[in-house]
Every structure is written in structure tokens, then in C-alpha cells.
């Protein structure tokens, strides 16, 4: 089980999220009451972007050394994005690496960063080569329509 500091910090983050919900999120919290190190979240698509209207579920594994080490976050709903693996949902975001992580980030702010990644793709370090190639070749229209298609096709629904 996690150290008391980690537990306390997570409880605090949970309360904080309850007090001031994050606009980027539909839901954030532990999956079960038993395990405080296993969270889930539902991310909303940014307005006026190809991801508008989308909903994606994410799974968050929190290390026992949190907040000194970053949580590992991945999409469980499939998403079409150059920096996110289509099948595994792995996210390529420097914030989530050990050397760039800092305890000042919370799960809520980290997920905000993930949402920002959606509107600010980096095709130079891709996990989804096909989509990245579209962007790299300047086919923005093709990219947008593909994103819109998958955003609606794979949209998370409550069940």
C-alpha cells in the first residue's frame, strides 16, 4: 500500500477536484474504493477543434512514490492522434516522463495537459505514424476529417 503521504495527497486531490471540477474532464476518481492508486477519468474534446464533442476514457496508474514520480496515463477509448497509440492508448507527453515530471502537477492538471496535447499535436515524435504522416504532409483537411470520424465513432458512452 502506498505511503501515508501519497494517500493523503491523493485524497486531497480528490477533494480538490470535487470542490473545483476541471472543465476538461467529465469524471475523475478512483476506480474502486479499495485501491487509491488506480484512477479513471473521462476527457472531453476541446471546442472548435476536430476533437469537439468527443469523450474518451482514461486509466491512470499511480506509482507508490507519487507525487515524486509521474502517474502513468493511457487512453482506454481509442483516439486518433499522432502522439497517442491507437491500440494501446499510450501517450507521448514529456510531462509524463520522470525527468520532466514535478510534484507540482496534480492528476487534474496533468489531464488538462493531455487535453492540450489534443489540440497541439507533435507529429515529429509520433506514436500513430499514419496520422502523423497526414499532418507532416500538410493534409490538414484529411487529418481533421479522420479525427472527426474516429472521435464520433469511438466516443465513450456511459456503461
Amino acid at each position: 500500500m502506498a505511503s501515508p503521504q501519497t494517500t493523503q495527497r491523493l485524497l486531497r486531490e480528490l477533494k480538490e477536484y470535487a470542490a473545483s471540477p476541471n472543465d476538461a474532464l467529465l469524471h475523475l476518481g478512483p476506480v474502486t474504493d479499495n485501491d487509491l492508486l488506480d484512477w479513471e477519468a473521462v476527457l472531453k474534446g476541446v471546442k472548435d477543434s476536430p476533437y469537439e464533442g468527443g469523450l474518451w476514457a482514461l486509466r491512470i496508474r499511480i506509482p507508490e512514490t507519487y507525487p515524486l514520480t509521474p502517474p502513468s496515463i493511457r487512453f482506454t477509448t481509442r483516439i486518433c492522434h499522432p502522439n497517442i497509440h491507437f491500440e494501446t492508448g499510450e501517450i507521448c507527453l514529456t510531462l509524463l516522463t520522470s525527468e520532466h515530471w514535478s510534484p507540482v502537477y496534480t492528476l487534474s492538471t496533468t489531464l488538462t495537459a493531455v487535453q492540450q496535447l489534443l489540440t497541439d499535436p507533435r507529429p515529429d515524435s509520433p506514436l500513430n505514424l499514419d496520422v502523423a504522416n497526414l499532418l507532416r504532409n500538410g493534409d490538414v483537411a484529411g487529418w481533421e476529417s479522420l479525427v472527426r470520424y474516429f472521435t464520433m465513432e469511438e466516443r465513450w458512452n456511459m456503461n
Binding site: 477533494k15 480538490e16 470535487a18 470542490a19 473545483s20 507540482v104 487534474s108 492538471t109
Partner: peptide, 23 residues
Amino acid sequence: FPSFPAGGRTRSSEGGQASGQQQ
């Protein structure tokens, strides 16, 4: 700090309903 929309003001007692008493 700017990157934190959810700042420190949440300690007021009208925070959560369920956990309020315990709090």
C-alpha cells in the same frame, strides 16, 4: 500559482457533502 485553477480555497467547510463532517 497560475497553472492551478483549483487553488487553495477549498478548505472552506462547504466543500464536499459526504466528507464534510469528517473534514
